[in-house]
Design a binder for these strands. Structure first.
Lengths: 190, 190
DNA sequence: TCAGTGGCACTACATCCGTAGTAACATGCC
DNA sequence: GGCATGTTACTACGGATGTAGTGCCACTGA
């Protein structure tokens, strides 16, 4: 049942993340999954259905990553927050880059195809339910807005590093600086 | 001569920014430019040539925008910097969104096709030549790194707002916060 | 045992795309 | 005027792509 769908969707994420949006075709997914031609076309009758499926699967995969992250995070400790989030970003720009690139490709597509935005909104809400309390515990006066700012910074760091990798990539510095600007200064950073 | 090329490239940017990477075809560009079929295919013999041309034109267009920005910017004034940059971001997420979406689409493609990265590096260097002195004038201790952080934040804000527009979009708050965290605190902002 | 059901492999087809080739055309030079 | 050169318009074609259709097979429940 969903076993095959998941196999195909994970293959589709790999295609999307390594070869780009234009190469995401039914046949390419079949090949990547090692399944006979027609399998993807059969499970996802149209290309839009395939894209929607990929998006849903992507949300699942990334949600799992955040949940794991939450476990490692002592609440209310900005330094630990910076370290752990920085580590996540480092991971997402190296071993985990395929998933991030797939997501960014879909984001770009969402800017053009508004029907995808609903799902992005849902995924973002789920992420906010996890992240806003974390930011609040750090002492933020407006955790909702501050969480969105952090999210934007993280996405920007990911996007720039993936499009144009730099050797001395130091995401922690940027996160730490933004946090320092957001939080009350009763706890001097560094 | 380059008159026709520029016409075609500007049409290609519109196609890329409004219909996405997958729809960027020779024929679509012909139609968007109002030129007979075959024009784009003739000027840009391969699709890669078309993409490269679009990228070059994009750098031209955005460079012009920064230069104009530079004129409005009194040096060494963080508040003015936040206001002007915030205004630019607001513009780039509304009237100017087509160009930004086109650029982000190419960034995603660059993550997959490394040959584009060279050109991204060149465009980024040009931007840095403009921006690093500006950041230095604000009092930054490490203008090169700080400029890159600001760039990442701006790109993240743009990307998020374009993929999932929010009513109460306030880019100034994020920029101001990051700046506050980066600059020495001898001039308490807000 | 056997009809029914649903997923799966495989195929067919119309369409679209990238690319290259050719002919008409303008423009500048002798 | 006549020729050369480079640009533009148009067409052709091989190949890939999206989509739907068809038959096979395993499994279910009586």
């Amino acid at each position: 049942m969903t076993d095959r769908r998941q196999l195909l969707l994970d293959a589709a994420i790999r295609v999307l993340g390594t070869r780009g949006l234009r190469q995401l075709t039914h046949r390419a997914v079949d090949a990547e999954a090692g399944l006979p031609e027609g399998s993807a076309s059969n499970q996802f009758r149209t290309r839009d259905a395939l894209v929607a499926g990929v998006f849903g699967r992507l949300v699942e995969v990334e949600t799992a990553a955040w949940d794991q992250l939450a476990g490692e995070l002592p609440p209310g400790d900005p330094d630990a927050f910076v370290t752990v989030l920085g580590g996540l970003i480092r991971h997402l720009t190296t071993e985990g880059r395929v998933v991030v690139q797939a997501r960014h490709a879909l984001f770009v597509e969402a800017a053009v195809h508004p029907e995808l935005r609903q799902e992005i909104g849902a995924g973002r809400d789920r992420l906010a339910r996890w992240g806003v309390p974390v930011v609040a515990a750090l002492g933020s006066a407006d955790p909702g807005a501050h969480f969105r700012m952090l999210l934007a910074l993280v996405d920007g760091l990911l996007g720039n590093q993936l499009a144009y990798p730099e050797e001395d990539f130091a995401p922690e510095a940027a996160i730490s600086a933004l946090l320092r600007g957001l939080l009350p200064a009763d706890r001097p950073g560094r």
